[in-house]
């Protein structure tokens, strides 16, 4: 009797900015079971990420610096990605910053005069999402027939936050700090709805990683975060949690 052949691996492209680093470390450490996927990274860190754009239907680097960053992160010589290049695309981080969205929205909605309808929330959320280039690229890929997911940049890390530096994002919105699951739920739903309408699966930050309304638990700070006052990036353990949520969504 002939042995059953293994199903072919699905090709997965994880597109993002510097947050790809924690995912790479999580995968390298075997914190996530990626069997069944042929995984490739594509993107650029820091300012170079802003130099990636949708040109002639593909996501491409617009400058030599960005092109160099892309090749370094990808490691397989892929200068650009197009909707038909992979079975699945996962946009990870990619500048869709929850720390920019959640605190002002939750603060507003917690005010006595701040209740808003679902329709208003949807309109505000759509503006926020479509204001992020990577989100627009993800939507374009989905429109072109690709299977696409989006995991946003997580909330700032508690215990690391420098309130002076993060004033615009966090300190000015104290009512948001008291938010809990029920208050965040409509925002996650609104984000999910906006992406779903464009054919993109949205993967929210897991609720059990969030504390004090609008922060990621300090447990998920990467090594050296306190010294570097790095409120943005997260540990491989956090990336593993996110990836498991992503895999659950795409399975």
């Amino acid at each position: 009797m002939p042995s059953q052949s293994k199903p072919p691996k699905k090709t997965l492209c994880i597109i993002g900015d510097s947050h790809l680093g924690s995912v790479k470390r999580a995968l390298d450490a075997g914190l996530v079971d990626m069997a069944g996927f042929d995984t490739e990274f594509w993107g650029a860190q820091g300012p170079a990420f802003r130099q990636l754009n949708l040109i002639d239907g593909a996501y491409r680097a617009q400058t030599p610096q960005a092109a160099e960053a892309v090749l370094q992160i990808n490691g397989r010589g892929r200068a650009h990605v197009a909707p038909g290049d992979f079975d699945i695309f996962l946009f990870y981080g990619a500048r869709l910053r929850m720390a920019e969205f959640m605190p002002p929205m939750l603060h507003h909605m917690a005010r006595p005069n701040g209740a808003i309808s679902r329709a208003v929330l949807a309109a505000a959320t759509e503006r926020f999402v479509r204001g992020t280039r990577a989100a627009r690229v993800a939507m374009h890929f989905a429109e072109a027939g690709a299977r696409v997911y989006f995991a946003p940049t997580p909330l700032f890390t508690d215990g690391v936050i420098d309130f002076e530096k993060a004033r615009w994002a966090v300190r000015d919105f104290p009512l948001a700090w008291a938010a809990d699951v029920p208050q965040r739920a409509p925002l996650w739903q609104a984000l999910s709805d906006i992406f779903a309408a464009a054919g993109v699966g949205f993967v929210p930050q897991p609720e059990d990683t969030i504390c004090r309304g609008v922060f990621t638990k300090a447990d998920y700070a990467p090594e050296g975060a306190l010294d570097a006052r790095d409120v943005v990036h997260k540990s491989p353990e956090f990336a593993a949690l996110m990836m498991r949520a992503c895999l659950a969504a795409l399975n």
Binding site: F101, P104, M105, H108, M109, N113, G114, I116, S117, A119, V120, L121, A123, A124, T125, R127, F128, G131
Partner: peptide, 17 residues
């Protein structure tokens, strides 16, 4: 403006609502 629009709501939508 005692009942301001929420953050991110575009001007046209703010007027619509």
């Amino acid at each position: 403006n005692a009942e301001p629009a929420p953050p991110f709501l575009p001007k046209a939508a703010a007027q619509q609502f």
